[in-house]
Design a protein around this nucleic acid. Sequence first.
DNA 1: ACATTGACCTGGGAGC
DNA 2: TGCTCCCAGGTCAATG
Length: 271
Amino acid sequence: MPELPEVETVVCGIKPYLLNRTIDKLIVRNRKLRWTVEAEMEQKVAGHKIVAITRRGKYILIKTSGGCIIVHLGMSGVLRVCTEDTPVGNHDHIDIRIRGDGVMRYHDPRRFGAWLWTDADPGEHRLIREMGVEPLDPDFNADYLYQQIKVRKSSIKSLITNAKIVSGIGNIYASEILFAAAVRPHRRCCDIEYRECVSLAGAVKNVLNDAIQKGGTTLKDFTDINGMPGYFTQELQVYGRENQACYHCGGLIQKIVITQRSSFYCPQCQH
DNA sequence: ACATTGACCTGGGAGC
DNA sequence: TGCTCCCAGGTCAATG
């Protein structure tokens, strides 16, 4: 479900409820997520104070006085704040109970998400260590992009969704970014010129910042911590708009499949 | 080293 | 109504 703007929205939403609070206990009802939640998770987490909540790519890092909880929402993960007497629904796999009051509940029908614990620096965790640069970091720019693309033969779409190159861009925003940059998704990386990297780097930042500002994209079921949808959905230029008119030129948006995922683009506006 | 494919899951919608 | 098929916002691990 969530890409970088949605994860950022979730991180901002949970901060007021979790920051500087102490975890009373962790309740795991279903351990079978992408990786089985470790048997010692409850014991490792309990009693620690939450000192920071940050994001790295699509990972949520809940840093505590004793270590870090690493959460990934996968395709269908949702975090919501509720109380202890809120009825537990289907697919409500994990609760963090806060000392005093309040519960953060993890809901994930498809169970592609992950809950992991590390006592070390989460930046050194095997899933995070190899990750590429943050797209909103100044280190992500035209020079970096050009250096990456000029040696590769894959499509530009698969490159910008490759978390080892740049973290946090998924299937929706890839289409939107490529439209904003006027670059077709199936273009070979090594055929792309430097001036197009300038457009691409700018489009990455503009599209993601805009989406964050609007609270992310809700296609089916994404909501923020209070159950509110994201308003970037109305801003989508190409994603999900096959055979509809391009807002710029009136031509028909096309859908193509690249590495088993749908991509949408305007054949007239993108080259 | 790079590129592609399979695998992991459930639910919703289209089509019959 | 109900069945089957296809699709879905992710990405690691295995393979070529």
